[in-house]
Design a protein around this nucleic acid. Structure first.
Lengths: 143, 143
DNA sequence: AAATTATTGCAAATAATTTGCAATAAGGAG
DNA sequence: CTCCTTATTGCAAATTATTTGCAATAATTT
């Protein structure tokens, strides 16, 4: 985490954006969130200390210089830390208890790339979430 | 197409929703669109004939009974025709222009099941979206 | 420490979504 | 085919989300 903050400071400097309390607060929210967030969620998470207008503008500025990644899903944008900050992975989640496991599988990544290219796109990213019910929860449901 | 309309009429009847001009108009928009649409896009496409309030409520009603499928991309929902109209599939989307193609691949479904089970879960569902940049948009970016 | 200028907060404009209610019309019964 | 019931609609207005202009503030550079 301290490591991530250092990267953040360096990236801000590199891109000529000023390092402010507000932007640091947004960064922390995004570090703690384990998933991409909408602007509304970020506004909620940073709290009253930062005006919502500022969140809109800061997010836009940081996305512009790739410190944040815009996850363009349809017509709403979500935001997460850019490539510099996070390794690539996916999740399998229990629908009942929310327990989450990480998925790492080269076949998956390979297939994703293949399918994206076959669709005529230069691959940028993909979203992939598995859902199911874990053994513990299965047992509880039987009772 | 005529075929799809017959399914639509039958599904509306089955689920107890009334078949109205407005809903038929929305249905047609969704048949013609080759990708999931946001509510705003649907409102635009159906035109003044249908009040936007009605679009909101009709979409909600039809999604409720699975005539429409909610494509939950983050926090914005998009809508497309449900399982009865189209086989199970996923999407590959251009991040720039939003153009979307359908992905059908048995290897994908198989791998997904395997990974879910390997994570100790009894599979229920999954979310899977591919993103990239289409050739047209690549060219525009170079200019 | 002072100067420069990006960033912020606020107020107010604009856009998107939801809700209450009275008028309308779809679908079933006769 | 006509009547009846009640889901559906359109409208106005409330709520919520996003954007913009501007003057005050504060991050960097020297």
């Amino acid at each position: 985490m301290q490591n991530l903050k250092e990267i953040f400071v360096a990236e801000m400097r590199r891109s000529g954006l000023r390092l402010t309390e507000n932007r640091l607060a947004i960064f922390k929210v995004l570090v703690e969130a384990k998933k991409p967030l909408s602007i509304q969620e970020i506004i909620l998470a940073v709290g009253d200390g930062t005006h919502f207008t500022t969140v809109y503008r800061s997010i836009e500025a940081m996305a512009e210089v790739k410190i944040l990644r815009t996850v363009s899903r349809g017509f709403k944008n979500l935001y997460e830390l850019g490539e510099k900050f996070k390794p690539h992975h996916h999740h399998a989640t229990c629908e009942k208890c929310g327990r989450t496991m990480e998925i790492h599988d080269p076949r998956l990544e390979k297939l994703m790339l293949e399918l994206t290219m076959r669709a005529g796109l230069k691959p940028t990213t993909h979203q992939f979430e598995l859902f199911g019910i874990c053994r513990k929860c299965m047992k509880n449901m039987v009772k």
